[in-house]
Design a protein around this nucleic acid. Structure first.
Length: 460
RNA sequence: UCCCCGGUAGCUCAAUCGGCAGAGCGGGUGGCUGUUAACCACUAGGUUCGCGGUUCAAGUCCGUGCCGGGGAGCCA
């Protein structure tokens, strides 16, 4: 007999014989019978199972404490008591794995996020983390379905990279050499001995490779893990995170901003449409303002303002910031928060940044002072998306690299794309975990990744 | 990496001025009830994060290390 998922029992409209398999959330004993709350991860809800204390069932029931895995076979019937529409009257039980109540760390009561991080292998069995993981899966699907619907090709950028100057972020070095062996070698010996014959790292972005593919396939995107070795200890940084990076040929900055806004709105709408029950949990127990925030995002277009205009808004605010703003200065966290949380009270896209504070590959505007870059800022989280129109003019790109002090040689293939059939193109990176923080209201990035990697944390 | 706060029972936390180590929840035992964060009674449970110091006496004060949280920087 095939098992029925709890989700299908709870959403069904008729009873019948069923086989359920899952984990016991709690057991309530009466004199002659007990109630089991069974959860199988298919949805937030549990099925209430009524188990009579018969000679066959009682010995098995006694082994089913909170956390135990079991199978329940029985009749699905309308529940006579309030609290649930359906319940299952058990006719047979199978115990797969017991959970010693003396040592099983998950209790029926609420646990702190900090404690649950120390048992990341068990926390998916809690309501909150089960809900988060279902939403995470649903959001990944929504990313693919939105971009697929727009005609984007899903491409796979390499995770191992040889260019150790891709961008600003510190990179994780990758080597197959024993550290002690490598330490005894001269740099030349070591280079020859390295697996790739040169230094290798984990990628900090698939953008440069995505550009090459966009200049062949038109519209592409990567969606994969990304690595930063920055010693960042904050609620919104992780050493390993997932990033969605669309790249469009024949597109400018406006197209880029349009796509970012439409993608974010599409993902939020998908969550509201497909994760109703799980989002309700977050709205009730994690962030009371969640639903208002999410529907607010869909209400009206995002604010778009040039960086220079953002500076003027900040200067005119009358606020005394810890870091005073002036023409050409970067936006600090306090400025970003003021703009989207207090002044506009909604997502804000800031664009046309001074070229000095942005990366070399961003397209130089006609004013010669700014580049066609954009950051999408959202309340509470800050930068959700960072992108730009790319510099497609070979001479300008080479000049910008020289200004930045970058050697041209390792970028020979990147520059080739501007040498042969270059075309205007644009793209951005969207932090997938930050999106999940936005959608769930969860405040710490460590709680939207099943097994987070942060400085000094590589357990599990 | 810098600044601030914290680390006491399985979990969440109290402990006055430096003076006997406490509660709720969870666990165990018994009872009760179509229960549902079940309820009632009883009960067990401690290297007070580690190391060093001050003191008659340290959970409490000092130094240091580790871990966690918040803020900042960097960014997705």
């Amino acid at each position: 007999m095939q098992r029925t998922r709890v989700r299908d029992i709870l959403s069904g409209d008729q009873g019948g014989h069923a086989l359920l398999k899952g984990w016991v959330r709690t057991r309530r004993d009466s004199k002659d019978f007990s109630f089991l709350e069974l959860n199988d991860g298919s949805c937030l809800g549990n099925v209430q199972v009524l188990v009579d204390h018969t000679p066959e069932l009682l010995p098995l029931l006694e082994r089913l404490n909170t956390g135990a895995a079991c199978a329940v076979e029985g009749e699905v019937v309308a529940s006579p008591a309030a609290g649930q529409k359906w319940e299952v009257r058990a006719s047979a039980l199978t115990v797969f794995g017991e959970a010693d109540p003396e040592t099983y760390p998950l209790q029926k009561k609420r646990h702190s996020d900090e404690f649950l991080r120390t048992i990341a292998h068990l926390r998916p069995r809690t309501n909150k983390y089960g809900a988060m993981l279902r939403v995470r899966s649903e959001m990944a699907l929504a990313v693919h379905s939105f971009l697929h619907g727009r005609g984007f090709a899903h491409i796979h950028a390499p995770i191992l990279t040889g260019s150790d100057c891709e961008g600003a972020g510190e990179m994780f070095r990758v080597s197959n050499l024993e550290p002690s062996t490598a330490a005894a070698m001269t740099p030349a010996e070591r280079e020859a001995a390295e697996f790739f014959g040169r230094p290798a790292s984990l990628t900090v972005s698939g953008q440069l490779e995505a550009e090459m593919l966009a200049l062949a396939l038109g519209d592409v995107y990567t969606f994969g893990p990304t690595f930063r070795a920055e010693n960042s200890n904050t609620p919104k940084h992780a050493a390993e995170f997932w990033m969605v990076e669309p790249e469009m040929a024949f597109a400018d900055l406006k197209d880029d901003m349009d796509l970012a806004e439409e993608l974010v709105c599409s993902l939020v709408r998908h969550a509201l449409d497909h994760c109703v029950v799980d989002l309700a949990l977050f709205g009730n127990f994690v962030d009371k303002t969640l639903m208002a925030t999410l529907t607010g995002i869909l209400d009206q277009p995002f604010v778009r303002l040039p960086h220079a205009e953002a500076i003027r808004v900040l200067q005119a605010s009358g606020r005394s910031f810890e870091f005073p703003v002036h023409k050409g200065s970067d936006l600090q966290t306090e400025h970003e928060r003021f703009l989207c949380e207090e002044h506009f009270k909604r997502p804000v896209i800031v664009f046309d940044y001074p070229k000095e504070i942005k990366a070399f590959y961003m397209r130089l505007n006609d004013d010669g002072a700014t580049v066609a870059a954009m950051d999408l800022l959202v309340p509470r989280i800050g930068e959700l998306v960072g992108g730009s129109q790319r510099e497609e003019r070979l001479d300008v790109l080479e000049a910008r690299m020289a200004e930045a002090g970058l050697p041209a040689e390792p970028y020979w293939w990147y520059l080739d794309s501007r040498r042969y059939g270059s075309a205007p193109h644009a793209g951005f990176g969207l932090g997938f975990e930050r999106l999940l923080m936005l959608v769930t209201g969860i405040a710490n990035i460590r709680d939207v990744i099943p097994f987070p990697r942060t400085p000094r944390n590589l357990e599990f």
